[in-house]
């Protein structure tokens, strides 16, 4: 493995680490809520043992909260599992809409912390390309991370996918007047390396604030 490939692997591992850290933080919050609600049930039992009447409505409310948090945890783990399996193959057929949806969902906690909303638009959902799924997740995720960190004044972005000629396209909107930020982010070595590995190109349209990532329909062709 050459130095350049080593560098790419390290960058991809960093993305994997960031996502995993964010997921584990969110799971800890779920566990903390379950812990406090289970503790409240114990407190209620202790009160009943001391002769106080049981408030059934209170118990039902606790049960509902716990079920809600279990559902939240299940969703997080499903996403995490799907993300973990994206390193299984170097090249496979990828549905771009599904990939973008999962990347945005994985980024949600960080986006919320930054006070930013990213909406995945329901547009063309059947666009598929043969590519490296994990490298593409790392590219889109890292771009979202950097752009939202460096342009904090923008609180709303949208992302969608489409196809153009034989290319798959991912479009990030909401970057009006961010020409310097976008240029700086795209000029970073790790993003250039990821774009190179994916044979992808970018196009930033300053006047509309749209950033396009263009992907070949088959990376091996």
């Amino acid at each position: 493995m050459g130095i350049e490939q080593d560098h790419n692997v390290v960058q991809e591992l960093r993305y994997f680490g960031r996502v995993t850290a964010s997921i584990s933080h969110e799971l800890k919050n779920v566990l903390a809520i379950l812990n406090e609600n289970a503790g409240l049930l114990q407190d209620l039992c202790a009160m009943v043992n001391q002769g106080q009447p049981l408030d059934v409505t209170r118990v039902q409310k606790l049960s509902t909260t716990m079920q809600k948090q279990i559902g939240r945890g299940d969703k997080i783990i499903k996403r995490m599992n799907r993300f973990a399996h994206s390193v299984d193959h170097d090249c496979e057929s990828v549905n771009l809409h599904e990939l973008v949806t999962i990347v945005v969902a994985l980024f949600e906690r960080i986006a919320t912390t930054r006070g930013i909303t990213i909406e995945v638009m329901t547009g063309t959902s059947g666009v598929t390309v043969k590519t490296n799924p994990f490298a593409l997740e790392a590219l889109v995720g890292t771009m979202l991370d950097r752009l939202t960190a460096e342009a904090p004044a923008i609180t709303r972005h949208s992302i969608d996918v489409s196809s153009h000629n034989t290319m798959g396209q991912i479009r990030l909107q909401g970057l009006v007047k961010q020409v310097h930020t976008v240029a700086r982010v795209l000029d970073s070595d790790d993003l250039k390396a990821l774009l190179g590995a994916l044979h992808a190109k970018t196009d930033f349209r300053q006047e509309t604030g749209e950033l396009f990532i263009m992907l070949p329909d088959n990376i091996t062709a």
Partner: peptide, 15 residues
């Protein structure tokens, strides 16, 4: 920022 956490923990602390 987790409202469910605040509600349960505050009730336990009050108890």
């Amino acid at each position: 920022d987790e409202a469910d956490f605040l509600e349960a923990l505050s009730e336990r602390m009050r108890a």
